[in-house]
Design a protein around this nucleic acid. Structure first.
Ligand SMILES: [Mn+2]
Ligand SMILES: [Mn+2]
Ligand SMILES: [Zn+2]
Ligand SMILES: [Zn+2]
Lengths: 147, 147
DNA sequence: TTGCTAATGATTATCATTATCAATAGTAAA
DNA sequence: TTTACTATTGATAATGATAATCATTAGCAA
């Protein structure tokens, strides 16, 4: 049994939520994808395994996976919420190419530390942050596929 | 004549766009507000001066003000695009309290520099970024109004 | 088994924003 | 000034992601 499934089952038990085949399926499909995936995309994949599943169920349970700490919401600012793995996938930020959409996960401990410091200057205690770096990747600059 | 109006008129001329009373009004009302304001909020204010104005006109022209460099879009992740002044208001990031919503504009030149550096490590040239710091302000922690 | 109640799936509703389109109005040339 | 051209407007419908509703189904503990 995967550690993630274990976590999920404990989460459900603790919250008095029920274990359903839909939930198992959604978790299973989610875990198999390493990319950032939207509810819609996941729904399309899941339908192939269980054509009777409702899309609301997928939306609902992705939020649940987030609550359980297994998924994390990612907002690239295009109006679509995506989900990524949150278990054994430590915090990172995203560097996105404006030309081709290529995405790199990055982390800089100095930046992270300075953010905390800035927040403290204003009397805030930092709980989390969203940092998206936008630019043009090497290929796009060569092929001037970008603005 | 305000510098912003001058910029706007030049922008319109250069783009072969027309100067209309609606555009003048929207610019005027926008400039009078120092806060981050949504199209909807601005529409409500503008209606008082010109009840016949259409809300699509407000949406359209806020985008235009952004193109002209007078406004800048801000995305706090709540599904509503807000606009802030972009003329004589240099780049800054936002520190937001999860408890009361209080918002502080911050900037840290070291963070800005490090972001560029990180992007370069991956062959990217940084064009812009979005950084939102979330936390709890001093008052909210005292009154434990927060989670 | 039963009984309680959470979960599901179909459907409708929301809500911000965009598209459509006929009517209107800048603007520059005649 | 008129005219002619075309950008702009305002009303309205459409979009698209997500949430709410609700009758039906189905975990699960007794
Ligand atoms: Mn990621
Ligand atoms: Mn600001
Ligand atoms: Zn690229
Ligand atoms: Zn606060």
């Amino acid at each position: 049994m995967k550690a993630e499934q274990d976590i999920f089952h404990k989460f459900l038990a603790q919250k008095d939520l029920r274990d359903t085949p839909q939930r198992e399926l959604i978790l299973d499909v989610f875990l198999k994808r390493e990319e950032h995936v939207s509810a819609e995309q996941l729904y399309d994949i899941i339908k192939k395994r269980d054509p009777s599943i409702g899309q609301a169920t997928v939306y609902r349970n992705l939020k649940l996976l987030s609550e359980a700490g297994l998924a994390r919401e990612v907002d690239f600012g295009d109006g679509v919420t995506r989900y990524e793995h949150n278990y054994n996938h430590p915090h990172h930020d995203h560097l996105v190419c404006r030309g081709c959409g290529k995405m790199v996960e990055v982390v800089d401990s100095v930046i992270e530390e300075l953010q905390k410091r800035v927040a403290e200057q204003y009397g805030f205690v930092l709980t989390d942050h969203a940092l998206y770096l936008y630019g043009n990747c090497a290929e796009c600059r060569k092929g001037h596929r970008s603005g």
